[in-house]
Amino acid sequence: MEIKSYISNKIPVSPSIDKVGVEERIARFQSRSIKNEAKKQGLNMVLSMIDLTTLEGKDTEGKVKQMCYKAKHLHDHFDGIPQVAAVCVYPSMVAIAKNELRNSSVKVASVATGFPSGQTSLALKLKDTKFAVEQGADEIDMVISRGKFLTGEFAYVFDEIAAVKETCGKARLKVILETGELVTLDNVRKASDIAIYAGADFIKTSTGKIQPAATMQVTYTMLMAIRDYYDETGIMVGMKPAGGISTAKLALHNLVMVKEILGTKWLSNEWFRFGASSLANDVLMQLVKIETGVYQSNDYFSID
């Protein structure tokens, strides 16, 4: 299939990233003192921003159903706990998840385009995307072609994203950069710009299959790309760090960073998400700790 050429000449020149400066700035986000009341609100916000994720070869219908139940009932023993934003599954599980979540506000996100490596033809990637959308996915998480990116074929990467975006229709598109494979922060910034200009609704750090995943350095760099784009065009793009954020503390640091770089407009699950599987339990344990004053144990929280 011939790649339709989009307006890839729109790829902007990306600024270079000062790594030392980034690290310095991040250290500050981590030293903010967050008092109990703010912490409680922050933790509830984190929960409402989680994309509960299962992306494994061993996923079964039962596993997905169980996760969907958890998405709606995080911890019923405790009042005022929100539902998560979405569940994130493979295309083959979308219909099952959609059915389980039919009467709730929890969205279904599906990975697509040959996740996680993306090493397949564009035709197959579009088919994969189309299948997921037809199955009822509200959101599509695509991966970029890192090999092409690293060999400098930016136009190819751009056109591919634009083609997937077109196939998505109404579904929102999250573009996974897989920053662990992009090596430098300069590359992360470049890839972010390509994804944003090609039409991404969200940019996302990682698949969760490669380490390092969502480090704060990487998320910071991507947030700056979103801010620059917003300053220039007035268009908001969402952000989803995924992989490696497993503690409430780290999640709160991320929220502080979003607030200080992008502002309160981004502090909702329409514009910011966490891709995580074990984060929810840690946040729940912190919330119960704040309420009861007693440190909690995993023994009293659901496993999946």
């Binding site: 004053g293 007693v294 440190y295 909690q296 144990s297 995993n298 023994d299 009293y300």
Partner: peptide
């Protein structure tokens, strides 16, 4: 006290 009340 923290140790005694800790659920884990």
């Amino acid at each position: 006290a923290t140790l005694a009340s800790h659920m884990d």
